[in-house]
């Protein structure tokens, strides 16, 4: 085990595994967000379920560890990789040999991190730690997260930030998804193509899904 963590591949494996874990979280997150399109009552009940369910509450700290591992080790590996080429090439043309997201995972990750900080302080913190309005659904009083979201997304600049965040995430996952399977060794000639196609589909789905919700609320106010 100590060999595992000392080696660059071992650390890289942790980035891949934590990445896949965070990816599963993104899918759950998008699913819950889609309730926003179904209306106020559906979304508020979904949010109530997510904030009170013991299973979800147990996973939350694990999720935080996932983020810390993924970000921390990636930063460490990026600096390690920088050291591997102290003298740079004068002219570099990697456009024919690799995709743009694959070469810019650190930059994309950094942008997503900035978005994450904004996002957590905007929604997650407000829902969990501040007093927001309550509304009655089916005889039970629940937090009216729907109105909070709808109000936020009536600001165009808010929507710009969220669409940008979703697009950065899409690019990050476009490479990250297939890369994670390659790193954990669950790939070969045939499966790499499958993971790539599936990754392309899911990254577009996620970027579009989150963006559409933000745009939907903006368009509603027009």
């Amino acid at each position: 085990m100590s060999n595992f963590l000392k080696a660059s591949i071992g650390r890289k494996l942790l980035v891949g595994l934590s990445g896949l874990f965070l990816f599963s979280f993104i899918l759950v997150h998008l699913t819950v967000n889609l309730f926003l399109l179904a209306g106020q009552e559906s979304y508020n009940i979904a949010t109530h379920f997510m904030t009170t369910n013991p299973v979800i509450q147990t996973i939350e700290p694990i999720l935080a560890i996932g983020f810390i591992l993924h970000i921390g080790i990636s930063v460490w590996l990026t600096f390690w990789n920088q050291r591997a080429r102290p003298e740079k090439f004068l002219k570099v043309d990697q456009s024919k040999s690799s995709t743009w997201p694959s070469r810019n995972m650190f930059v994309l990750g950094g942008l997503i991190f900035i978005f994450l900080v904004i996002h957590i302080s905007n929604f997650w913190y407000k829902i969990n730690f501040t007093e927001i309005g309550y509304i009655e659904h089916g005889g039970e009083m629940v937090k009216d997260a729907y109105t909070m979201v709808a109000t936020s997304f009536s600001n165009w600049w808010y929507v710009v930030i969220y669409v940008a965040g979703a697009v950065f995430l899409g690019f990050h996952l476009n490479h990250g998804f297939q890369s994670a399977f390659q790193t954990i060794g669950v790939s070969n000639e045939i499966w790499r193509k499958r993971w790539t196609v599936l990754g392309n589909f899911l990254s577009v789905l996620i970027a579009a899904g989150f963006s559409i919700i933000a745009l939907y609320f903006l368009l509603k106010t027009l």
Partner: peptide, 14 residues
């Protein structure tokens, strides 16, 4: 390879 100072793989495929 780690000891010799090679970088780690990020699967760019280049």
């Amino acid at each position: 390879a780690d000891e010799l100072g090679f970088g780690s793989c990020t699967n760019t495929g280049a």
